[in-house]
């Protein structure tokens, strides 16, 4: 039951474009096990800043 809810939450978060730290961690662990991942706070800050720097983020 909780897994369905978790999946729904993850789905909605990705649609609205919320930073996805879990996906980032999974990526680093799978592809770059030697690297130390950045903290969640750093990751979120970096993602949010990146989102509002490009014209591709917003439309009329």
């Amino acid at each position: 039951m909780s897994t369905t809810l978790d999946r729904l939450v993850a789905l909605v978060r990705r649609i609205i474009g919320a930073p996805d730290y879990a996906a980032y961690l999974a990526h680093v662990r799978a592809r770059h096990p030697e690297r130390v991942p950045v903290s969640e706070q750093e990751f979120v800050a970096e993602r949010l800043n990146a989102r509002y720097e490009r014209p591709g983020a917003r439309c009329c």
């Binding site: 649609i15 996805d20 990146a50």
Partner: peptide, 24 residues
Amino acid sequence: ADGRDYVPTNKWIVFGHHFAAISG
């Protein structure tokens, strides 16, 4: 894939995300 900008995503999620971004 970098876990940041480049993240393989299911087409329905991309559709929702893209639609939310283009509609204003």
